[in-house]
């Protein structure tokens, strides 16, 4: 996959373009031969002269790619943040039907891509058929590979992290053959989040069985800051411990704290706000109603010296700390 290049003229901002080719038989394929159809992968690249080229991956290359936990990885998108950190995460993908034996493209092939949820993934253990998990989308989800043999589409990541299955099928419109589907996985996540481990110097709170049981995943820097905060607080007030609530879910992305009906008086639904900043591993809530005035004062001093900015939120009463220096993807 190392030769994959950004697809010229696409909307992709950061990720390499990936191309998948569905291998089929030669121009005219009968139903009798359909069982022999196989799947292969191709990729776009820029040659030494700077020209974009398309290469069909070998069967061995495809098998290696398909054997990985995810065919590609992408960060969750960020939308509706007026702070200017909105980013649509996209990955350009090109699909094609090819002859598995000759490598020739099968032109004018109808290709369709569909998405499927992976239940209980991304740290979201809640399931509500009325509110399916956002999977992102391929735009467009289907099309014809046309005269050049390629159907170009773009995967747009959702704000919610987790694995997404995608299935691609094709129909050779000239030969009439049905090209059997391939199924691959996309991993949507904020990379490199680490679980803040239990410790005698703080209490971890806020996990909700059946909904989000891992709610303390942060960046390594944030986790180190939080540990220093709790250590300094306990050193100043022996016997007292900070109660640490949500940081982020294991894969980051939207932390839909109102995942179950009735969880929030404001009526938010699963996969929505609030908790909008708890998606990158650099924000944490700390219970405050058990903290005395003297302790609050000390808490602010310690947080300030750790370069953590502090806000107070009332529902329920807690401190909200942000590590300055970690920007969203």
């Amino acid at each position: 996959m190392s030769q994959i290049s950004t697809y010229r003229g696409s909307m992709c901002r950061s990720l390499r373009a990936t191309a998948i080719a569905i291998a089929g038989m030669a121009a005219v394929v009968s139903a009798a031969f359909a069982a022999d159809l196989r799947i292969g992968i191709g990729e776009r690249y820029v040659d030494e002269s700077g020209q974009e080229q398309m290469r069909v991956m070998t069967m061995e290359e495809f098998m290696a790619a398909a054997a990985t936990p995810q065919f590609f990885e992408i960060r969750p998108s960020v939308r509706f943040l007026s702070s200017g950190n909105n980013v649509e995460q996209e990955n350009n993908v090109a699909f094609a039907c090819v002859n598995a034996f000759t490598g020739q493209l099968i032109l004018f092939c109808d290709i369709t891509v569909t998405l499927e949820d992976v239940i209980d993934d991304g740290g979201h253990h809640h399931v509500d058929p009325a509110f399916p998990r956002p999977l992102g989308e391929f735009d467009p989800p289907s099309g014809n590979s046309g005269a050049d043999g390629f159907f170009d589409t773009t995967y747009i990541a959702p704000e919610v992290s987790g694995s997404v299955l995608f299935r691609v099928v094709g129909v050779d419109t000239i030969g009439g053959a049905f090209i059997p589907p391939i199924e691959l996985s996309i991993l949507v996540r904020v990379p490199n989040l680490v679980n803040l481990p239990p410790s005698p110097i703080y209490d971890l709170i806020g996990d909700v069985p059946g909904v989000h049981i891992f709610n303390h995943f942060g960046t390594s820097v944030m986790n180190a800051k939080v540990t220093k905060l709790a250590t300094a607080f306990t050193a100043k007030f022996p016997g007292r411990k900070l109660e640490l609530n949500d940081i982020s879910l294991p894969l980051g992305g939207i932390f839909d704290v109102c995942a179950r009906a009735g969880d929030c008086a404001s009526g938010q639904k699963p996969w929505q706000f609030p908790h909008r900043t708890h998606r990158f591993g650099d924000n944490i809530d700390v219970r405050s109603f058990t903290v005395s005035a003297t302790e609050k004062r000390e808490f602010e001093k310690i947080a300030t010296r750790l370069k953590l900015t502090l806000k107070v939120e009332n529902k329920p009463p807690h401190f909200h700390l942000t590590f300055f220096g970690t920007l969203p993807p």
């Binding site: 943040l81 908790h275 900015t309 502090l310 806000k311």
Partner: peptide, 17 residues
């Protein structure tokens, strides 16, 4: 320090270091 009912109220407000 800045205080609000919930996090969404702070949307667009960044606390300076």
């Amino acid at each position: 320090v800045p205080q609000a009912d919930d996090e969404d109220d702070f949307e667009g407000i960044e606390i300076p270091i």
